[in-house]
Write a protein that binds this DNA or RNA. Structure first.
Lengths: 238, 238
DNA sequence: AGTCCGGCGACAGCTTCCCGACAGCTCCCC
DNA sequence: GGGGAGCTGTCGGGAAGCTGTCGCCGGACT
């Protein structure tokens, strides 16, 4: 189920001047079994980094006082090579390029979906950890998902998924064989702040099912409905 | 809150401006062997949190004065990363809650069933405890219930239960081998304020029995009637 | 033997889920 | 910058499954 086995917990520092966002990320990370610490200002971020020694940093670019780049520069000035993932506002296209050229390892545009952030963090960690990047391939039954190439296969058949379908499926695969509620799926895969209290999840699942199972001779369905509760991805439950 | 096999009692803070509700939750928690403290206002909640250091918080969002969100913000501002389970009214705020629950914190809509609340609290605690992958499996005789996959088995045979049946069975299993009255079952599994002064419990038990025992050659029945009192779940009755 | 309590078949109303159809949007290509 | 293609979410009808009520029956206790 996990992509890389480290015995110690990943240590994450989250820097965002918007406490709810920072806490959101920290909470998610904790539920993944990581250790997470938050900072709401650039100064605080540097202090925390010094004492906490994070393995990875999530860094908002728009901070009051010392801004994101400043924080990064000073981190580097200390000789810390800790990987950094930037958060930026929607329209700051300039920020993106600048961010990457100035030593960030990845970036994400706000508002983001928590699963996507976690996925990127795992990718960055994976890249930094091993010399040759070990592929991360999720597998449930005869279904495989290669997170590097984004190839998804049912047996040998290559599936073509839309971005949303891909994300939902990844979440289902990562949590398999746990049953997930629609609310959980919505909360993890859609951007925070998404209003739609609708049946989007049902719909995407429906579309996913069709693609997963559209085989000529029936492979048994992989996505199961748990009525009154949610969905699971797993192989035939006898 | 570090390890799940904690010797110390779980410390729970319940915040609800409706004293009967808060006390109800606190009482049930104490009955489970937890330490529970109640607060009826936001200010009080912050005070109690500061001195009591809870492991988990149940927080009603509609509070007079400082509301639920305010309480949460200030808790977080202190650096407390204590997990929170929110309570909200049926309509209205539910949307805004969504944003807060993404992390893995959870929420419940009023009126809720006490057992469901306790189940979610246990889940959240379990997930915080560490590498988030430890399963919670209940077992009574040859009957097992996996709370993550929601799989229930009698021996090897997989049972398919409706949500209500599942909840009743879980309660019976958790309390086994204690005898429970119909009133207890009703009070714990159905929403507080449920009107039906009827024989629902009998009915669900009846349906459960059929599913549990429908084996070809008789596995001995697991649910036993204690006439004039209630029901027990246990292996051999004498 | 009478009375009471629990078991359970049958049914009706309701909730939940699935999915076809469609419209707004974005992104890309010309 | 106009047109097209694909993606995403809304609406709503229809089907399936779940829940609780009624009421009779049978067994248990007095």
């Amino acid at each position: 189920m996990q992509h890389y086995e480290r015995v110690e917990k990943v240590r994450l520092l989250v820097v965002d001047d918007d406490p709810p966002i920072a806490d959101l990320v920290a909470t998610v990370a904790r539920y993944e079994g990581w250790e997470a610490v938050t900072a709401y200002t650039g100064e605080d971020a540097l202090r925390r980094a010094a004492e906490f020694h994070p393995d990875i940093v999530v860094l908002d670019l728009m901070l009051p006082g010392v801004d994101g780049f400043g924080v990064l520069d000073r981190l580097r000035a200390f000789g810390t090579m800790v990987p950094v993932v930037f958060l930026t506002a929607r329209d700051g296209v300039a920020d993106r390029v600048a961010g990457l050229t100035r030593g960030g390892d990845d970036y994400l545009v706000k508002p983001f979906a928590v699963e996507e952030l976690m996925a990127r963090l795992r990718t960055v960690l994976r890249r930094c950890a091993g010399p040759a990047f070990q592929r991360s391939v999720l597998r449930v039954g005869d279904l495989t998902m290669d997170e590097d190439t984004r190839e998804v296969r049912r047996g040998a058949r290559l599936l073509s998924l839309t971005p949303t379908e891909y994300e939902v499926l990844r979440y289902l695969m990562r949590k398999s064989p746990t049953v997930l509620t629609k609310a959980q799926i919505l909360d993890h895969v859609w951007e925070y702040g998404f209003g739609g209290r609708s049946n989007v999840v049902e719909l995407v699942v429906s579309r996913l099912r069709r693609k997963l199972d559209e085989t000529d001779e029936g492979g048994s369905p992989l996505i199961h409905t748990v009525r009154g509760f949610g969905y699971v991805l797993r192989q035939a439950a006898e």
